[in-house]
Design a protein around this nucleic acid. Structure first.
Lengths: 147, 147
DNA sequence: TTTATATTTATCGTACACGATATAATCGCA
DNA sequence: TGCGATTATATCGTGTACGATAAATATAAA
């Protein structure tokens, strides 16, 4: 592979991923705004709706975010009374994040979001099969990047 | 498509893209750190190395970033004397960004970065063909998301 | 048991990212 | 020619990201 090809490959894969990421949060934002949520906050809720009562560390591993990002984010969610933050009894170092009634209730309003996102992406020239392949490659890339 | 499938699809495509984006900037960061650059600053330089003297608007369209992000970013690059910012003579509203000698010189040190990135991603189970297909789908997704 | 080490969060500083808004220059049209 | 609409940047506030570091707790080795 020549240097030119390497430049092309890294820039024509990495840069578009970064751009797509920003565009994705923009597509979510009008729907999330109605719930007074940001995209990272929505991700935290998705994780908690699936499994309530997770430590900061568990959320950290699932969301690929460290405590320096998560702690302030979770504090903002606590201020909005979406979640509680409590030191674990078993391990005083850990902080357990649990859903408040408000946080649980928000799930009802959020279930339509994926539908609206899919609708936003509809009418496209991207087949379901292509999406599945894309997701597969993306998973491999993340595994490599995360090493 | 059921709601469950929609949730799975949107979350299993959108979320991984966002994660991959963060991981990509992390992979670049040690190499960029040696040049005292951030990833967005590197993207600006890539654009300018290809075509010097571009307005904020032109950079905005290429990088998918608005002036509220670009202006402070470009000012930091100006402070580091990587670029100049000058009002256009033809259109006093526009600001032309041009490379300084330092900015031009940095290209020499940066040419090895794509090689190092590719090397970081090497030994993977992702074929070149798969990457090309990935890039193609990514391009379509960006086109849809950007509408 | 001590003491060194590792783990889990939190804090701080810097740099994006972006919605809302402001300002100045240019354009279009009556 | 004017003057309202559009365009190009800039400013401001809030919310992530993340490297570096600190602080508290738990674990392990001597």
């Amino acid at each position: 592979m020549t240097d030119g090809e390497k430049l092309l490959l890294s820039n024509q894969v990495c840069f578009p991923v970064v751009v797509a990421s920003r565009l994705i949060t923009r597509v979510y934002s009008p729907f999330l705004e109605e719930l007074d949520l940001t995209y990272p906050q929505y991700l935290v809720l998705l994780a908690l709706w699936e499994t309530d009562r997770q430590t900061v560390g568990e959320l950290s591993r699932k969301l690929f975010l460290d405590s320096n990002t998560l702690t302030p984010l979770l504090k903002r969610m606590e201020e909005k009374e979406l979640v509680y933050r409590n030191r674990s009894k078993q391990d005083e170092r850990s902080v357990v994040i649990s859903l408040s009634e408000t946080g649980i209730g928000l799930k009802e309003k959020a279930v339509c979001i994926p539908d609206q996102i899919i609708r936003s992406l509809e009418g496209s020239s991207v087949s379901t099969e292509e999406i599945l392949k894309f997701r597969e490659t993306l998973g491999k890339l993340i595994a490599i990047l995360d090493k």
